[in-house]
Amino acid sequence: MEWGRAMRELSTAIDYLAIEDPSEIPRLQLTEQLIELHWQMARLQAQIARRTSVRGASH
């Protein structure tokens, strides 16, 4: 997937989360969403770390 498209999709997903009212989400569904969000956040942090480590590498 092309970088720009991937970032737009990520941004759109975050925008969608921002307009949701978590207080209206049933507790079980909210728990499932929190687990998934933490999983996806860990994946994103891993990619940030990969790219950060490249900056420190000497070429």
Rank of each mutant, 00 (worst) to 15 (best):
residue 13 A to H: 02
residue 43 R to Y: 08
residue 28 L to H: 01
residue 25 I to K: 01
residue 57 A to N: 08
residue 27 R to D: 11
residue 22 P to D: 14
residue 50 R to K: 13
residue 54 V to G: 00
residue 42 A to L: 06
residue 35 I to F: 11
residue 38 H to K: 14
residue 59 H to L: 05
residue 50 R to L: 07
residue 19 I to V: 15
residue 22 P to I: 07
residue 7 M to L: 13
residue 56 G to W: 02
residue 34 L to T: 10
residue 52 T to E: 14
residue 11 S to R: 02
residue 14 I to Q: 13
residue 22 P to G: 08
residue 21 D to W: 01
residue 44 L to E: 11
residue 53 S to F: 03
residue 31 T to E: 14
residue 17 L to Q: 06
residue 26 P to F: 01
residue 30 L to Q: 04
residue 8 R to A: 15
residue 55 R to P: 00
residue 14 I to D: 05
residue 31 T to F: 13
residue 50 R to S: 11
residue 47 Q to H: 12
residue 15 D to K: 09
residue 4 G to D: 09
residue 43 R to L: 14
residue 48 I to E: 12
residue 34 L to P: 01
residue 30 L to E: 05
residue 24 E to P: 00
residue 46 A to N: 08
residue 57 A to V: 08
residue 42 A to T: 10
residue 13 A to Q: 04
residue 34 L to I: 09
residue 14 I to N: 07
residue 51 R to T: 02
residue 15 D to A: 13
residue 41 M to W: 13
residue 52 T to K: 09
residue 23 S to C: 03
residue 45 Q to S: 13
residue 20 E to R: 09
residue 18 A to Q: 14
residue 44 L to W: 06
residue 5 R to I: 11
residue 10 L to F: 12
residue 16 Y to R: 15
residue 41 M to R: 11
residue 1 M to E: 07
residue 53 S to T: 03
residue 11 S to T: 13
residue 36 E to M: 14
residue 56 G to T: 10
residue 25 I to N: 01
residue 34 L to W: 05
residue 37 L to M: 15
residue 28 L to G: 04
residue 8 R to N: 15
residue 40 Q to V: 08
residue 51 R to L: 07
residue 13 A to S: 09
residue 16 Y to P: 00
residue 16 Y to S: 10
residue 13 A to D: 06
residue 19 I to F: 08
residue 39 W to G: 03
residue 12 T to K: 09
residue 46 A to P: 00
residue 7 M to V: 10
residue 5 R to E: 14
residue 57 A to S: 13
residue 26 P to V: 04
residue 26 P to E: 03
residue 23 S to E: 15
residue 19 I to M: 09
residue 51 R to A: 03
residue 16 Y to M: 12
residue 34 L to Y: 09
residue 15 D to Y: 02
residue 51 R to P: 00
residue 56 G to D: 07
residue 21 D to T: 02
residue 6 A to S: 14
residue 29 Q to H: 06
residue 27 R to K: 07
residue 12 T to M: 06
residue 27 R to H: 03
residue 39 W to Q: 15
residue 23 S to W: 05
residue 22 P to K: 04
residue 12 T to F: 02
residue 52 T to D: 09
residue 3 W to V: 11
residue 43 R to A: 14
residue 48 I to L: 12
residue 22 P to E: 13
residue 55 R to E: 12
residue 27 R to L: 10
residue 46 A to G: 06
residue 31 T to C: 05
residue 59 H to W: 04
residue 26 P to N: 03
residue 6 A to L: 11
residue 20 E to V: 04
residue 17 L to E: 04
residue 7 M to F: 06
residue 35 I to M: 08
residue 31 T to M: 12
residue 50 R to P: 00
residue 5 R to C: 04
residue 17 L to G: 00
residue 24 E to S: 06
residue 58 S to E: 05
residue 24 E to W: 00
residue 1 M to K: 06
residue 3 W to D: 06
residue 14 I to R: 12
residue 44 L to N: 09
residue 14 I to T: 06
residue 54 V to W: 02
residue 40 Q to M: 11
